[in-house]
């Protein structure tokens, strides 16, 4: 192995990332929680927990349950709301020194637009990640993400509110044809795609014969979903994103450098880590360094050489 410098920087619709490592929304809070464990300034970009116009208390308990090689969550978009986010959390994010993307959720299109307009005036925020794929709230969220026409409509509306920020649309895997939804939001002006969100799932307490989660269902994440997520990135890259020139942020069960490299080869320009942060947030650094080792071992000078480099013959 040589120790030549390799270039890990990537470009997400004009936002320069020092490396492709990002956090998945909702798994890294507002960046202060892990400060004693890992230096988040080493990240390529930071993605916040979902923000809604007003505060949300979230779902009743139990909210999480571990399953084999994964976990279900039904937090219910618990968050401090836009105003408290601007007052209390933005100053913390400013000290990070990396691009921040804010995940935005809502009930009506007007909610999303109002939040996106305010965030367009915040310097540290470089992009909106549109959450049209949360499986754990009764109204809003996923209803926009499972219908191509509605997904396109909300994308266009929020895009109009993003004069400075880029617009990333986070897609739900709970659809028959994820490429069709991807095509609809790209057509409507999405600058980048995040895929995938969690899979709607259920765990049952066989003694009480009730669902374990208070919300009955939750979103499955973790290593269990990774092969499906890789497949969906490959499919959206081939059928939509490559030709449209729209970057993909790949996520779903990434825990080791090996996993991240699968997503990059399948067509992701950046990768985000979620559930693995709950296990050990230091994995962000190990994954970044592992990708650099892989590039050296295969004689690449830049990470861009392996994006979408899957042998498709």
């Amino acid at each position: 192995m040589t120790h030549d410098e390799v270039n890990l920087s990537v470009d997400i619709a004009g936002v320069k990332l020092a490396n492709p490592l990002m956090t998945c929304s909702g798994t890294c809070g507002y960046a202060t929680e892990y400060a004693d464990i890992v230096d988040l300034r080493q990240l390529g970009a930071f993605v916040t927990k979902s923000i809604t116009a007003g505060p949300r208390v979230g779902n009743d308990y139990p909210r999480v349950v571990e399953t084999r090689a994964g976990m279900l969550n039904a937090i219910g978009l618990a968050n401090v709301g836009l105003e408290a986010f601007l007052d209390e959390k933005v100053p913390l994010l400013e000290s990070l020194g990396v691009p921040v993307f804010v995940n935005v959720a809502g009930r009506e299109i007007a909610d999303y637009v109002a939040v996106a307009e305010r965030l367009d005036e915040v310097d540290v925020v470089r992009g909106i990640e549109l959450n049209i794929s949360c499986p754990n709230v009764k109204a809003g969220g996923i209803q926009f993400g499972t219908d191509g026409a509605m997904a396109g409509e909300i994308t266009a509306a929020v895009k109009a509110a993003c004069r400075r920020n880029i617009l990333i649309v986070k897609l739900s895997p709970n659809v028959t044809d994820i490429a069709a939804i991807a095509a609809a939001v790209v057509e409507a002006g999405a600058d980048a795609l995040s895929l995938v969100n969690t899979f709607t799932a259920m765990a049952i307490d066989i003694e009480t014969r009730r669902p374990i989660l208070a919300n009955r269902t939750g979103g499955l994440s973790g290593p269990a979903i990774r092969p499906i997520a890789v497949h969906m990135v490959d499919r959206v890259y081939r059928q939509v994103a490559r030709d449209a020139g729209v970057p993909i942020i790949g996520m779903g069960g990434i825990q080791y450098a090996h996993d991240a490299i699968e997503f990059l080869l399948a067509g992701a320009t950046a990768v985000a880590v979620g559930t693995a942060l709950f296990v050990d947030a230091r994995c962000l650094i190990e994954i970044r360094d592992g990708i650099a080792d892989y590039l050296r071992r295969h004689g690449h000078a830049s990470i861009t050489e392996i994006i979408g480099a899957l042998d498709r013959e």
Binding site: G26, T27, C28, G29, E33, Y34, I37, G58, N59, D60, Y61, P62, R63, V64, V65, E66, M71, N73, I75, A78, T275, L277, F278
Partner: peptide, 16 residues
């Protein structure tokens, strides 16, 4: 006592 994922306030799983 609660089931937890992260143990440090990030996942918000252990609500009371």
């Amino acid at each position: 006592e609660r089931h937890m994922a992260c143990g440090m306030g990030t996942c918000q799983g252990c609500a009371v």
